[in-house]
Design a protein around this nucleic acid. Structure first.
Lengths: 347, 347
DNA sequence: GTTAGCACTCAATAGACGTGAGTGCTAAAA
DNA sequence: TTTTAGCACTCACGTCTATTGAGTGCTAAC
């Protein structure tokens, strides 16, 4: 059967209506509200066809029809109109984002907050993947307990710090810091080879009088810190909005799913090719999300995808608006990250 | 009317029963299950008395009775038996806590995780308030964009870092760092007076050729970072458990309440006197929590209350177990913080 | 090809009703 | 005086049974 122009218009009308009301939509409603100039009976016939073609689902005989995943997919691919974000919203967005650019964390948190505020759905955002980011400075600070603190700063301003339960006086700390700096500065996490660690080890044992155990301890520890450099985190905001479109049991399952951030990370892992990714219902391979849609966009740093942000909402979400909002926000993030990490002047 | 021994025993039985079933408990159930040697009629009479005295509430005429806030309060103050935590649990706890002691954040997160796991309720924990903690080291690192990074480390190992949109070459960064270090090291946030900032200002303008605007910028910025040193944060874990004992609307309100962490902070602010704090139902001044109880304990550093952890759960929670669990966890935190920040050797 | 008309379906709502867990009161027993 | 058996009463809850109404599919006429 062919998907005629008229069928399309009817499908569009049904999707529009359903997005607004979340109730199965009947033929009469369509024939009344939209001036297609067709009676409910005709629309009924077309709807029967659309159902046969897999675009509509009837919850039960005497109910209206509901768009299927296939319908949403078709809508998203071919029918969706561009949504224009209001100037007022953009200005608000700019103001909100530009307030807190002194810390990467704040930017990311702010962005997820804005995403959820703009769409009213659960938002998520990953911290930028800064693989390839080299170490700019290391520092060892001796603390008041029997502890020392290792700080590693990358050229992009990522700071990792770890407490080491090893007592060092200020002088040894300075020496250790010097050695670490000499070895690691200018390297990315990937560049740090066994050789380099080994040469560092020998230099440390030459210049500082440490027990073998303490030495191993230090190296282990540096290794851990370096490993962590490339870790990305994921923030989830406004999870409570799940309660709005799910019953309590499904909501509970969703919360459990979102609790382990690895789940969501895995889910969006492969989505960094295109700019916008939309996964509708069972297109998400995960049972818990089969009644939801997941829309994500990439944001980038240095012309390379650095992370993703998106929303999780009901399948009947306003995709056009969500996509436009995400686009807009990701652009802002791009801009801010550029300012922050690349700047006008190349070093 | 007097609260006789027998009335007490009946009250205890009702509370016990209600904690288990969450259903209004009737006279017959009490007379059967507990071997008080009394008929349901007698118990009925006593229950009527207890209701008149404010300890019991009848949801409707033909229902059993439910303990009132007053009853819970009485129970908690005078009737509650000591709960003994199993050795197995303690061992698990020790193992879990001792794994991640290299970062303050991890300890705090772990602790809240364990709290919610042990009690199965929503857990919260504040980061330690380290007021009085002096600055050990400051550092300025110039980054690849037109930015610099300020890092402040306290003697307790708290690290604050902020990105400053000001381009500095490595040399100027070093000088600026030196000046800041000279001025701020050894001071707590409170000690940093206007005088000190001013003297720092004049030294910076002497030794570095900066525009007045950039200078103001730097000082503002240092000021901000120092302000942040004393900030405490609060982690909330397992908020989803709220769904278990609340209807969807109340849950939504609770989520909204918990979303703004200031709310919870305010709520527990005054509770740092005693070791354990229990607030039952409307004893929490907040509308959203009038069906919940909030149990918190303090943990300390250096013999001074440093923070709080606790749970939010239904009024019919197992207070004895919750209190015992919190006690146990806070003790562990105390121990770990001691190890981390005080150590065996005084510096 | 379109539409008016009609019989049909079925979820949702409301009312009727029985059930049972619980009560309070009273009078007899201890 | 205290306790208890007994009984009438209450009321949420589940079941059953219309009733309603939104929606359908089919058919015959336009």
């Amino acid at each position: 059967m062919e998907l005629t122009e008229r069928k399309l218009r009817i499908l569009q009308a049904i999707i529009d209506e359903y997005m607004g009301t979340a109730e199965p939509v009947g033929s009469r409603a369509i024939s009344k509200k939209n001036n297609l100039g067709l009676s409910s009976a005709t629309i009924r016939n077309e709807m029967a066809d659309l159902e046969e073609m897999g675009f509509l689902i009837q919850p039960h005989t005497s109910a209206g029809r509901v768009p299927s995943d296939v319908a949403y997919r078709y809508y998203v691919n071919s029918m969706m109109k561009r949504y224009k974000i209001g100037v007022k919203t953009i200005v608000q967005l700019q103001n909100a984002m530009e307030q807190k650019i002194s810390q990467l964390d704040s930017i990311i948190k702010k962005a997820s907050h804005i995403t959820s505020a703009l769409t009213d759905y659960t938002a998520f955002i990953t911290t930028p993947d800064v693989t390839g980011n080299y170490i700019k400075k290391c520092e060892i600070v001796s603390l008041s307990g029997g502890c020392s603190l290792l700080i590693i700063v990358t050229q992009a301003g990522i700071v990792k710090n770890k407490i080491l339960t090893l007592s060092l006086d200020d002088n040894s700390a300075a020496i250790l810091g010097e050695i670490i700096n000499k070895t690691l500065c200018g390297l990315c996490a990937n560049d740090i080879t066994f050789d380099k660690i080994q040469s560092m080890q020998s230099e440390i044992s030459e210049r500082l009088n440490l027990s073998p155990k303490a030495l191993i301890n230090i190296l282990d520890f540096i290794y851990d810190a370096v490993e962590e450099l490339d870790d990305t985190d994921i923030y989830i905001e406004n999870a409570k909005s799940i309660l709005k479109y799910n019953d309590i049991e499904k909501a509970q399952k969703m919360f459990t799913f979102l609790e382990d951030k690895k789940n969501l990370k895995n889910l969006i892992k492969g989505d960094s090719n295109g700019k916008v990714n939309i996964k509708i219902g069972s297109e998400n391979q995960v049972e818990e999300l089969k009644d939801c849609s997941l829309v994500s966009v990439n944001y980038s740093l240095n012309n390379k995808t650095a992370g993703q942000l998106g929303v999780i909402g009901p399948k009947r979400m306003n995709y056009a608006k969500v996509v436009a909002s995400l686009d807009c926000i990701s652009e802002h993030i791009d801009k801010i990250l550029y300012q922050l990490y690349i700047g006008e002047s190349e070093e």
